[in-house]
């Protein structure tokens, strides 16, 4: 018995060592599992095709300034922060006059911003946050829109038909970025109409192709078949998914207020 014990565990190991180790391991597993679970809720995802300005917007929301420049992102970036404008207002007047703030101050709690890379190979990383997302900001490059409109529509389609988005009716804000480019930038209405047309086409071809993840589920179509042509308004009426539109310039900061308002609405205090 003694010999067997020594051959198994080496000399110098006592039974209480083992007991202690087992207890410690159980405790650690518990701690790790708690620590690993993502913070629930308050996640705002920034999605969109590559080059649409997500990283710039992310920085603008977090710091209220611009970066030296950006390159194509390779990894998602997640930050729990107060919005830059909240920080600024807090600095300007602390404590803020009560009448200027709504009863539940939106600046009271930080939000969790996630910048998802736009490259097709890595854009699926947003699925790690699908359960805890409160809202999605979908960025589109208003200047370089037409050559990529079908690719953009495909990405938006995947978002709009995702079970989490449909099931939880996640609010989405379609932001046409780079409005600072003047006449080169397409108008929000133009982009919305083009995307609606593309999505309308996609829902007929995609629903026939679908197979992964449980087959021809009801969620693979945007609208029930037989409905009129697809519009974002019709989508909201039929499914309750609210898709707002906005025009903004992450570089210059114009219109970012609309995005901030959206973020605060999605993640109230």
């Amino acid at each position: 018995m003694e010999e067997a014990w020594h051959s198994l565990f080496g000399s110098g190991v006592q039974p209480f060592h083992i007991a202690f180790t087992i207890l410690a391991v159980i405790g650690l597993i518990f701690i790790i599992s708690v620590a690993r679970s993502r913070p629930n809720g308050r996640n705002i995802l920034i999605l969109g095709p590559t080059g649409s300005g997500k990283t710039t917007l992310f920085h603008r929301l977090q710091y209220g300034s611009t970066l030296n420049g950006t390159v194509a992102s390779m990894e998602p970036r997640e930050v729990t922060t107060n919005l830059a404008s909240d920080k600024a207002s807090a600095r300007a007047s602390s404590p803020p006059p009560a009448e200027l703030l709504s009863p539940q101050s939106p600046a009271a709690r930080p939000v969790n911003l996630v910048d998802i890379p736009g490259h097709p190979r890595v854009r699926d990383t947003w699925l790690a946050w699908e359960k805890s997302a409160q809202g999605i900001v979908f960025l589109v490059d208003a200047v370089d829109f037409l050559p990529h409109k079908s690719a953009i529509a495909e990405q938006l389609y995947d978002v709009l038909t995702h079970p989490s988005v449909v099931g939880r009716r996640l609010p989405i804000l379609l932001v046409c970025n780079k409005s600072d480019m003047g006449v080169k930038a397409h108008s929000v209405d133009f982009i919305r109409k083009r995307l609606e047309k593309e999505l309308d086409l996609l829902q007929t071809t995609r629903s026939a192709l679908e197979d992964v993840g449980g087959g021809r589920a009801a969620s693979t179509r945007l609208l029930p078949p037989g409905a009129q042509a697809f519009t974002l308004a019709a989508l909201q009426a039929a499914t309750g998914i609210e898709v707002g539109t906005a025009s903004a310039s992450a570089q210059e900061g114009d219109g970012v207020g609309l995005v901030e308002a959206f973020v605060r609405r999605c993640a109230p205090a």
Binding site: K54, T55, N68, V71, S73
Partner: peptide, 13 residues
């Protein structure tokens, strides 16, 4: 020559 983060921010160029 440039230095950037994997999340896409250009740090120095």
């Amino acid at each position: 020559f440039c230095i950037f983060t994997k999340s896409g921010a250009l740090l120095w160029a």
